[in-house]
Design a protein around this nucleic acid. Structure first.
Length: 340
DNA sequence: AGTCCACTGGAACTTGAGGAAT
DNA sequence: ATTCCTCAAGTTCCAGTGGACT
């Protein structure tokens, strides 16, 4: 949807989404160069350096990875890349299958195809072509095997993205040694000034003139806690509110109410990824301020028809803790869960 | 300072679905 | 058709852990 003359506030909505890739990244210059120089050997047919890109949410890890790859593609259109989010795809088969598909090789069949065959196919492509693999939310991986296989593709660029630097601490030594030559790039939280610049950039391309003042932009930057995703979402939600009311400018109140909505929306997105059993668990936990493992299981069983086993619940709960929906306290006898 | 046992998480196994081969 | 594979998701089993309670 392009700009419409009827819109008073929003000129281009997609510019106001966190996933939008601007044609020039403001800030993070040293990180950009570092990623680029690690990948550059690919252009000469040499082996690139594997990378762990880590930092808090909304610090530009994924965006910068994509940006650098797009820049390189301008010089080398042959360069292809595949992106996978381990939050959505966590098993070995699923990951390699999706990576292959993203590289445009859709000949493999969904079922009845051995995983090894898919891995081999990807390895073949990786050795013959110039490719970069972006593995996002690598901390959500359940099988070390995936990292082991990926690290074998020495000709392919490998960018692994995580929140914590310690993501590889408990993978087995075999995998760790394979990844030992990796470069680690930290993305710090944005400063207020940096966020301000980012928002000004989005304003220029996404909003109409005078839709929002510099002071208001600054206010959003200050309140976003170094998180660009949150800042951009806040700007968009405020803009949409003003647009709906057919105003010419965004009001103070709309900015104020946009932030909690932006946070809430983000959480909702996570909850939507849960299955019914997981949602019931979450609901039970949210209705108590602290619930013991045993009580939680009993209540869950009371509420469900075909209840899952305790072991499965434990898996669910771990997953939800990783998603930052709940928090567990203690081990052994007194384990309890709380909402976040 | 020791026993008890609720709770954890790894590993092996089962189930069910679905494509391929016969 | 049916047999033979594969996979994801779940279950069963159990050694290990560490809090609670003596």
């Amino acid at each position: 949807m392009g700009p419409s003359s009827e819109n008073q506030i929003i000129a281009d909505r997609k510019v106001l989404t966190a996933d939008y890739l601007p044609n020039k990244m403001v800030h993070r210059d040293s990180e950009r160069k570092q990623i680029a120089s690690n990948l550059e050997p690919i252009l000469e047919g040499k082996s690139p350096i594997d990378m762990l890109v880590y930092g808090d949410p909304g610090t530009g890890k994924t965006a910068m990875s994509r940006y650098v790859i797009e820049e390189l593609r301008k010089h080398e259109p042959q360069l292809k890349y595949a992106y996978i989010n381990c939050f959505k795809h966590s098993t070995k088969f699923d990951i390699f299958y999706t990576l292959l598909n993203n590289l445009g090789h859709k000949m493999v069949h969904r079922q009845g195809t051995p995983t090894d065959e898919i891995v081999q196919k990807l390895e073949e492509i990786a050795s013959k072509n110039k490719i970069v693999l972006v593995i996002d939310e690598v901390d959500q991986l359940t099988e070390d095997e995936v990292l082991y296989e990926l690290s074998r593709f020495t000709r392919a660029g490998l960018i692994m993205i995580a929140n914590q630097q310690t993501v590889f601490h408990d993978v087995d030594t075999r995998v760790r040694s394979r990844l030992s030559g990796r470069d680690e790039i930290r993305f710090k939280k944005y400063t207020e000034n940096e966020l301000n610049d980012i928002l000004l950039d989005r304003r220029e391309y996404g909003l109409r003139k005078n839709a929002i003042s510099k002071q208001q932009i600054r206010k959003i930057a200050v309140k976003s806690n170094g998180d660009a995703r949150r800042a951009i979402n806040t700007l968009r939600i405020a803009a949409q509110k003003a647009e709906q009311k057919k105003q010419k400018e965004i009001s103070q109140k709309q900015i104020k109410t946009a932030k909690p909505e932006a946070i809430k929306k983000q959480k909702q997105k996570t909850v939507e990824k849960l299955n019914n059993h997981q949602k019931i668990l979450l609901e039970i936990i949210q209705n108590d301020n602290r619930i013991s493992s045993t009580t939680l299981y009993e209540e869950y069983r009371a509420q469900t028809e075909k209840s899952k086993s305790k072991r499965t619940l434990r898996r669910y709960l771990n997953k939800m803790e990783n998603y930052n929906l709940i928090k567990s306290y203690g081990k052994g006898k007194g384990t309890a869960y709380e909402k976040l």
